[in-house]
Amino acid sequence: MNLHAVRAIYHFEMARAWRTLMQSIVSPVLSTSLYFIVFGAAIGTRITEIEGVSYGAFIVPGLVMLSLLTQSISNASFGIYFPRFTGTIYELLSAPVSPLEIVLGYVGAAATKSVILGLIILATAGLFVPLRIEHPVWMIVFLVLTAFAFSLFGFIIGIWADGFEKLQVIPLLLITPLTFLGGTFYSVNMLPPFWQAVSMFNPVVYLVSGFRWSFYELADVNVGLSVAATFGFLGLCLAAVWWIFRTGYRLKT
């Protein structure tokens, strides 16, 4: 295995995050703080608690998940799209690296950035509301698996996109609505039965539910289903990436 290459790609991508600190870290933390003010302080005065957890604390796992999904996709898609856009991808394609090493470098760095961001948001949330984490190991497992799965998804978008506009289409038109409708700011059980049934088709529900369970042991769906959904999405993304490298889709002519 070409570990030097994995390290080179990983460090290169991480260096970009530090160079763009405002965009990578400060901006998502600021957005999350605003969510706390708007949803926690304003709406929280009307909904005091959900199943024994204060509303402000209840939305923390959903907020972390919201940032985790959007940032994982954004980091990974930009990471691979930018060399394609500038033409520096020639170097990657002519290097003695396997698809696995490329994915480990790019997706590993994107997932690392998202996990760091998730932890920073958690720490920020701790300043606003009292936090309780019942299953810290499961919390980390959900955090890392989701970051990795959605970074893989972002990597696929970065390969598929042939312009900056396309890079934004799926995160804006698909992921953000699914996240907002996936129980980020509410419990799915609060919805009328019809919309509860519809929500079960939203994969983000399973991610948010599992993650929230690791905090408060509150879940909209069985935690086993949440783990299975996370692994299922990860598996789908891995299969798509495998196909991309096998066919050279959008990489090689």
Partner: peptide
Amino acid sequence: IGLVPQELTTDAFESVWATTSFSRGLFGRP
């Protein structure tokens, strides 16, 4: 193999040292 492409395709925001070191690592050298 080393390849110098026809187009001036470079990592605009990196330093000369960083981008050259990156290439060495990418090609599997310590």
